[in-house]
């Protein structure tokens, strides 16, 4: 049973390293498409959007990949051109500490409250 407690930590650890798997080019393309937001159909990724602009953006992504740019560099390029808004994956920086941290904080806090409650009830 003890191992269960450590599972989240183990998985967090692995999920950090897991992104290094070698993907085929088209899979990588689709992954990038899904992470970029379309400026014309603002609710959709360029993968889902059918707008002309999304098609052009897809072409640019393909060109960049062909020219040897990495996934990360492509995101940086688009963020540079259009602002951070364009990426569906928010960066972890001063602006987003709360975004990333608050849920985990709530989880820990909730855990503490529940443990205390259990301890109280047990006695």
């Amino acid at each position: 049973m003890k191992i269960i407690k450590f599972l989240p930590i183990i998985f967090l650890y692995f999920s950090l390293f897991s992104s290094f798997s070698n993907e085929k080019n088209s899979q990588l393309e689709n992954k990038i498409f899904k992470n970029l937001r379309c400026i014309i159909c603002q609710g959709q990724s360029i993968y889902d959007s059918q707008s002309d602009f999304a098609e052009s953006m897809k072409l640019v992504v393909k060109q960049k990949l062909d020219s040897g740019m990495s996934e990360e560099e492509i995101y940086i390029f688009f963020k540079d051109q259009y602002g951070e808004w364009i990426s569906y994956d928010p960066e972890f920086n001063a602006k987003t500490y709360f975004l990333w941290g608050l849920p985990v904080l709530i989880f820990l806090l909730g855990g503490a409250i529940i443990l205390r409650k259990l301890a109280v009830l047990k006695n």
């Binding site: 269960i4 599972l7 989240p8 998985f11 967090l12 999920s15 899904k34 992470n35 937001r37 990724s45 602002g83 951070e84 808004w85 364009i86 990426s87 569906y88 994956d89 928010p90 602006k95 987003t96 975004l99 990333w100 849920p103 985990v104 989880f107």
Partner: peptide, 26 residues
């Protein structure tokens, strides 16, 4: 974020996947 610092970001599937999946296992 927009109201407090006038910056616009998008929170999409990668965020939710990263925070939900590891906790889904336990």
């Amino acid at each position: 974020l927009e109201v407090l610092s006038d910056q616009k970001i998008s929170v999409g599937p990668p965020f939710f996947n990263k925070l939900l999946i590891p906790f889904l296992i336990p």
